[in-house]
């Protein structure tokens, strides 16, 4: 089943929950960009862009994925130099790469640009024991991800 909004389109895997959203703004001059949330468990409606309020609910076999778009001011900066949608590997995951460190969890952050749109891909794995499967499934999601101009 494909989920499409805000210039993003992706195939959601069976049993995964997915949202493609854009935060509301409180100021007319403010602009927000696309955010994708994917999880292997029910996500709370009140959650932070990078999984605040979500990762606390994860079990060891669970995975949580955020794809966060930055504004055009980030284009061309060294952090977003990688062109194209990346893939994750098990050796990219570490507890120190988590936004919020929780026992057993591992995180991975990758910055990239696709079609002149800068993104951060942030993946949280519930445990190292389930990392090979989580890596495989996240890469399958990334295989089907389309970022439109």
């Amino acid at each position: 089943m494909r989920l499409s909004a805000h210039g993003l389109s992706l195939a959601v895997r069976a049993g995964w929950e997915g949202r493609v959203l854009r935060r509301a703004t409180s100021d007319e001059r403010e602009r927000t960009y696309a955010v994708v949330h994917l999880a292997t468990f029910p996500m709370p409606e009140q959650r932070g862009d990078f999984g605040q309020g979500v990762t606390e609910l994860m079990r060891s076999s669970d995975a949580f994925v955020t794809l966060f778009e930055y504004g055009p001011e980030s284009l061309g900066t060294p952090l977003f130099a990688h062109q194209g949608i990346p893939r994750v590997r098990a050796d990219m995951f570490s507890p120190t790469r988590l936004q919020r460190m929780l026992p057993g969890q591992l995180g991975c952050q990758l910055f990239f640009t696709e079609n002149d749109r800068p993104f951060c891909l942030y993946v949280v794995a519930g445990s190292r024991a389930h990392l090979p499967r989580i890596v495989r499934e996240v890469n399958l999601v990334l295989d089907g991800l389309e970022i439109l101009i």
Binding site: M1, L3, S4, A5, V12, A14, G15, W16, E17, G18, R19, V20, L21, R22, A24, P42
Partner: peptide, 22 residues
């Protein structure tokens, strides 16, 4: 069947009903 639609916050929504533990 899974639920696929749009939310109330300018979002696209996919909520799995099949193949979940609950």
């Amino acid at each position: 069947h899974d639920v696929v639609g749009v939310g109330l916050r300018d979002d696209a929504v996919h909520i799995p009903v099949v193949g979940v533990r609950h």
